[in-house]
C-alpha cells in the first residue's frame, strides 16, 4: 500500500528518490524527481521570476501524459507550489493531488519536449489545443510574464529526453516502480 501523501514518511522517501537521482549527475531525464528538484532550485533562485510573480497565488501542475514506448508508463504530475514570487516546493505527486491543483496544464510528452526546447510557446500551444489548461484563464493571463519566465527556466535545465536516449526508458521504469510506494 502506498504511503499517504504529505506525511513525514512520504516526504522522507520522496527525498531519497531525489537524492538518488541527483547522485547520477546531469543531464536529468525530464519529469524524474531529480529533474523536478533542479527545476525547483532554478525557480527559487530566479529574481526575474520573483518580480514577475509577486501577486501570483496558487499551485501549478504540469501533467505529462503517459507514453509507454519511452518508459513513461503512467501519467506524471509535477506539482509546483507557488506563492507571491516564492517557489515553496516542486515535486512529483499522486494523480489525485495533481488533478486538484489550482492550474493544471496537460500535454503529451512530445509537447513538453517542444516547450522545453523553446519550439512551442505555451500560449500558442494552449490556443492550438496542444496543451490544455484547467483553471481560471484570466488569472493566468494576469500573470503571463511569470508563466513565460517559468517556462524559460525549464529550458535551462540540462535535460535528457527519453526518446533520444536508449537507456532512459529503463531508468524511468525503475524510478516509477520505486515511486509507486508513494502513490506517484
Amino acid at each position: 500500500m502506498a504511503l499517504a501523501y504529505g506525511t513525514d514518511e512520504w516526504l522522507q522517501e520522496y527525498n531519497k528518490l531525489v537524492e538518488e537521482g541527483l547522485s547520477t549527475g546531469q543531464p536529468f531525464i525530464i519529469g524524474l524527481p531529480e529533474w523536478v528538484s533542479t527545476y525547483e532550485k532554478l525557480v527559487q533562485a530566479d529574481e526575474p521570476y520573483k518580480a514577475a510573480a509577486k501577486t501570483w497565488e496558487g499551485s501549478v501542475v504540469l501533467h505529462i501524459l503517459a507514453k509507454p514506448d519511452i518508459g513513461i508508463d503512467r501519467d506524471i504530475y509535477i506539482f509546483m507550489d507557488l506563492w507571491h514570487g516564492d517557489a515553496n516546493y516542486f515535486r512529483l505527486v499522486p494523480p489525485e493531488v495533481g488533478e486538484a491543483g489550482a492550474f493544471v496544464i496537460t500535454g503529451e510528452y512530445e509537447r513538453w519536449k517542444q516547450v522545453i526546447n523553446k519550439e512551442l510557446e505555451t500560449t500558442k500551444g494552449l490556443m492550438q489545443g496542444k496543451l490544455k489548461l484547467k483553471g481560471d484563464l484570466p488569472t493566468i493571463v494576469r500573470a503571463v510574464k511569470a508563466a513565460v519566465r517559468l517556462v524559460e527556466l525549464s529550458g535551462m535545465i540540462d535535460t535528457a529526453f527519453p526518446d533520444e536516449n536508449p537507456e532512459a526508458p529503463q531508468k524511468i521504469r525503475e524510478v516509477l516502480a520505486k515511486a509507486e510506494q508513494l502513490g506517484i
Binding site: K124, L126, M127, V141
Partner: peptide, 11 residues
C-alpha cells in the same frame, strides 16, 4: 498578432 500578444490585449 501572435498568441501571446492576443492575451496581452486582455491584460
Amino acid at each position: 498578432t501572435d498568441a501571446a500578444t492576443l492575451l496581452e490585449l486582455a491584460n
